[in-house]
């Protein structure tokens, strides 16, 4: 394992921000850290980045305490957006690259590549403050990994991006993964997490509710999401055994089952004399699991 957090605790005077946090991230893996605002995600990132000391526990990178590794192996995109407002885009990227020990030739190659990929070629000589919010975000993102770190942390990388730029970013993250970069990121958009992550950790008020693979998480809940397109009435579906909830979404019914085993009897009842256009049994989406796990108490 590349990054390992063991029993990590961060306490302030009268408040525990992170409590007994444990997770591991494998080499070249994309790991999602999800939780509501104030769950302790940014604090966890800062502890991993050695920007804050943990109160207890250990954080290691390939067995070495994180404090002792070469800091140039790390890349970080903070949650709040911003770069040097007065500096030109290209100048900015050269500055961050030089700071991370890259020479001009290497940097030029990387900058050319990413400027082109993120459609920023024409903005090279513009001051950062003159760019749109989305473009500033792209420049900041490039600055965070221009030095090709081994481990990249992205705090809410998708927030504020339009769908086109979100796809650009998603593809870039997958590209970096292919190059062997280990990536840890947080997001409130669960579809992005579901699409990109191999493993994840759900935090609630500093406590880990789950840590492991996405599939394992889904298996915990089983295939309890049944989507039916039929002429059977909603009230009749709601009365069937094992049905917790029925929602009508456009021309379909989405049933939440108590257990996967109730699907078969439902199919038999519905198919008996009724027309079935669609009958699909799926795992819950991450968004639904998240709401169930985290949102319950707050809702």
């Amino acid at each position: 394992m590349t990054l390992q957090l063991q029993h990590v605790v961060k306490k302030y005077k009268d408040f525990t921000a992170v409590n007994d946090l444990n997770f591991t991230i494998g080499t070249g893996e994309i790991f999602g850290l999800i939780g509501q605002n104030g769950a302790g995600k940014t604090t966890t990132f800062r502890m991993i980045l050695d920007l804050q000391d943990q109160t207890a526990g250990s954080i290691t990178w390939e067995g070495t305490p994180i404090k002792k590794i070469n800091r140039d192996w790390l890349g970080y995109l903070p949650e709040e957006r911003g770069i040097f407002p007065q500096m030109k885009v290209e100048e900015q990227l050269y500055f961050f690259g030089h700071l991370r020990g890259m020479d001009r030739t290497e940097l030029k190659k990387e900058i050319d590549f990413w400027m082109n990929r993120f459609d920023l070629e024409e903005k090279r000589n513009d001051k950062a403050e003159t760019l749109s919010k989305g473009n500033q975000q792209k420049v900041q993102l490039i600055a965070s990994f221009i030095h090709q770190p081994k481990f990249l942390i992205l705090d809410e990388p998708f927030s504020g991006l339009d769908p086109v730029n979100r796809d650009l970013l998603k593809n870039a993250i997958l590209f970096l993964k292919e190059k062997g970069m280990t990536i840890l990121f947080s997001s409130h958009q669960m579809d992005n997490v579901e699409e990109l992550c191999d493993h994840l950790c759900i935090l609630k008020r500093g406590v880990s509710l789950f840590s492991g693979s996405l599939l394992d998480l889904k298996k915990q809940y089983g295939k309890t999401k049944l989507t039916i397109r039929t002429d059977v009435h909603q009230e009749d579906l709601a009365k069937m055994a094992g049905v917790k909830e029925v929602k009508k979404v456009r021309d379909e019914y989405v049933l939440t089952l108590m257990d996967e085993s109730f699907a078969k009897p439902i199919f038999e009842v519905v198919s008996n004399g009724s027309y079935i256009e669609k009958f699909s049994l799926d795992y819950l989406s991450l968004d639904e699991i998240f709401k169930e796990k985290v949102g319950g108490e707050h809702a």
Binding site: R71, G75, Y76, P78, E80, R81, I83, P85, A143
Partner: peptide, 16 residues
């Protein structure tokens, strides 16, 4: 204050 306000400082402090 400008570096802190623009959050560029957070990125800098990862390597410095």
């Amino acid at each position: 204050a400008t570096e802190k306000g623009s959050r560029a400082l957070e990125m800098l402090l990862v390597s410095v």
